[in-house]
């Protein structure tokens, strides 16, 4: 600026691509699309490279990994997904709860097949380089979405979590109180850590959750001999609580419904300049794509390439979502899932 003549010289400002994508995400996306590329330099239908690791050595029954045994680990199953800069680590831990008696479960009126499935309680933590505070909205929404999606996918049958292999010691010789016996079941929790957040987070979290679930090994349970006394009629005081010990070597593989194993994929829809053609973008990544693609399609496809979930968000009024676009997206998803799962 020159003070002398009172006029301002307006020069153009140049931003590097990554700064422009934050300052003006819509402009950045448009300029890339005009070149036939995306801000992450992938092609429109190109998926992100994905590395899956289910032998991460974090789990209790993984055996010796690098000479170190992890038999005291509470983790029952784990997996690590890496894609681009993003790393998602999922560890599944468990707890034991008392469940309703056999007699009441079987005579229940509501008894039917669909209620025989359950889910995992997931907690997602996205690392942002600061001390962990209360969970953010994004983390809560992701956790709840994971819970509901897994439940509706019918992957985890309730009966696989019921503990039926405990060595019991009873003080009742007649054994006639079998129906009143307390029963126990596992509940599973998943702790999902996300580092370098980027890309379609739900897809990666869901993928790591399903992959970890396939590796879950439930511990063999011992109730300490002297203390575990089945004592429902409370003859002897009734306050004796069993002490639960999980075996460090013996385990049972968790039985899951392998047929229903599925994979989630998210696509973004944008309109190019003349508004005639809708472009499908696979695996949205980066600030420009995440903020500007308001029309989204999320598809979950199972092993047999059947659709299990479809979510269409038409957030952008310039993008008209018709049958062709959805069918094209579903076909892209099916091809990708076929590569990943089969």
């Amino acid at each position: 600026m020159s003070e002398g003549n009172g006029q301002e010289e307006m020069g153009s400002i140049r931003f590097p691509a990554e700064i422009l994508s934050v300052v003006a995400p819509d402009l950045s996306l448009k300029r890339h699309l005009d070149l036939g590329l995306r801000p992450c330099l992938r092609k429109f239908h190109e998926f992100k490279n994905l590395t899956l690791n289910v032998k991460s050595g974090l789990s209790r029954y993984d055996g010796d990994v690098d000479g170190e045994s992890v038999t005291d680990s509470p983790v029952l199953g784990s997996s690590v997904i890496k894609s681009g800069n993003t790393t998602v680590i999922c560890g599944i831990t468990g707890g034991i709860v008392e469940i309703a008696n056999v007699s009441t479960t079987t005579t229940s009126d509501d008894h039917d097949d669909s209620m025989e499935y359950t889910s995992i309680y997931p907690v997602v933590e996205i690392s942002r380089g600061k001390l962990n505070g209360a969970p953010t909205d994004e983390e809560m929404i992701l956790s709840q979405q994971l819970y509901e999606t897994l439940l509706h996918s019918k992957i985890l049958p309730k009966k696989s979590l019921i503990i039926d292999n405990i060595a019991l010691k009873t003080n009742d010789d007649t054994n006639n109180n079998n129906n009143n016996r307390k029963r126990y079941a596992f509940v599973l929790y998943a702790n999902i850590q996300v580092f370098s957040r980027e890309g379609p987070l739900f897809d990666y979290c869901y993928g790591s959750l399903v992959k970890s679930l396939q590796t879950v090994k439930l511990p063999f349970i011992h109730f300490t001999d002297e203390e575990f006394i089945i004592n429902d009629n409370r003859k002897n005081g009734g306050n004796v609580k069993p002490e639960i010990i999980c075996d460090s070597e013996a385990y049972n593989q968790l039985k899951i419904n392998e047929e229903n194993i599925n994979w989630s994929l998210t696509f973004g829809l944008v309109n190019n300049d003349d508004g005639k053609e809708t472009i499908i973008l696979c695996d949205l990544e980066g600030h420009a794509e995440e903020t500007c693609c308001k029309s989204l399609i999320n598809v979950i496809i199972d092993k047999n390439l059947k659709m299990r979930y479809l979510n269409i968000v038409g957030g952008d009024e310039n993008v008209i979502i018709d049958e062709n676009i959805v069918l094209k997206t579903v076909q892209l998803a099916k091809n990708r899932v076929n590569n990943i799962l089969n």
């Binding site: 509706h152 059947k306 038409g314 579903v330």
Partner: peptide
Amino acid sequence: NLIYSESIGEFDE
């Protein structure tokens, strides 16, 4: 125009 849709369960296109 379709603004939003959510479908759960097994179905075909």
